[in-house]
Amino acid sequence: MELVVAIGIGVLAGSGVWLLLRPRTFQVIIGLSLISYAVNLFIFGMGRLRTGVPPIIEPGTVGNIALHDDPLPQALVLTAIVIAFATTALFLVVLLAARGLTGTDHVDGRERDQT
């Protein structure tokens, strides 16, 4: 399982970085989204990968760490998802504004052959 998750994160991050370096704003925003997925999975992985164990202690029992999952990274991922979503939406608006104002979707605001 670790290998699958690790490869998954690697593929997402790698594709994200490649897209980020492309000249079109749409490619950049997709790249940023892929990187944020990779980061979210990574945070999740830092709580150690386990299946079938609860993250919370039942009332009235004394918890045993070995039988529980770490709830904190899950909470962090939730926050990170919300923030990444909001900033991506904001970036999308700026992207549209740039497209409208410059008339091109190049990240520099002008095509390479134009000067």
């Binding site: 980061v39 970036f91 605001g109």
Partner: peptide
């Protein structure tokens, strides 16, 4: 808008690094 576009992209990458 052009400056903002690059500023936001750079800072979103920085936020990802921060989280990692």
């Amino acid at each position: 808008v052009k400056a903002g576009l690059q500023y936001i992209a750079v800072n979103l990458i920085a936020a990802s690094l921060f989280l990692v």
